[in-house]
């Protein structure tokens, strides 16, 4: 873990807990911890540069923006190709999550890809195209039936 100084930690904690929809969201955070708005913005920019923050933004519910067919897919990808294929699949608009994962014994599908599309037919086509383009013949498809939980992790 990267060592994070106290001031940065305070800013990140406020950002996590008190980011509000208002005209000056960073000013509120600055006021809460008694530093300047510039300090807050500079710290956030720095944390985006070093990767602690992936981005500031929104999470949307895929079903609400027209993606009604959703599936978790798992692909058997040779380890030497996983970086190339993972990076390319990440570019596909309908792909939201793409992870290389360690697998338990007896499980060969190491690349996990979450796909969202408007119809089941589109979804099947995207899967078929991935399979053909990258010559991946072995994969599993787990269609989403129901959301049981969705929350954000509190790190601070």
């Amino acid at each position: 873990m990267k060592s994070i100084d106290e001031k940065t930690k305070n800013i990140l904690r406020e950002l996590q807990n008190n980011f509000k929809l208002e005209t000056k969201p960073f000013k509120r955070i600055a006021n809460e911890i008694d530093c300047s708005e510039d300090d807050v913005i500079t710290t956030i920019t720095h944390c985006i540069d070093n990767g602690i923050i992936r981005r500031i933004g929104i999470a949307v519910k895929p079903q609400k923006v027209g993606f009604s067919a959703n599936a978790l897919t798992a692909w058997k990808v040779p380890p030497e190709k996983i970086h190339e294929i993972g990076s390319e699949l990440a570019e596909i608009k309908e792909v939201s999550h793409c992870y290389d994962r360690e697998c338990p014994d007896g499980w060969d599908y190491n690349l996990f890809v979450m796909i969202h599309s408007k119809t089941k037919e589109d979804l099947d086509n995207i899967i078929k195209n991935i399979s053909q383009k990258y010559d991946l013949k072995e994969y599993k498809v787990y269609n989403t039936v129901r959301e049981l939980k969705k929350s954000s992790m509190k790190y601070f």
Partner: peptide, 20 residues
Amino acid sequence: FQNGVIRYIGPFFDSKKLGY
């Protein structure tokens, strides 16, 4: 937000970089 399209606004942290 009200009609459920947006479910969260704010930072997305890289859990790995925070030791998770």
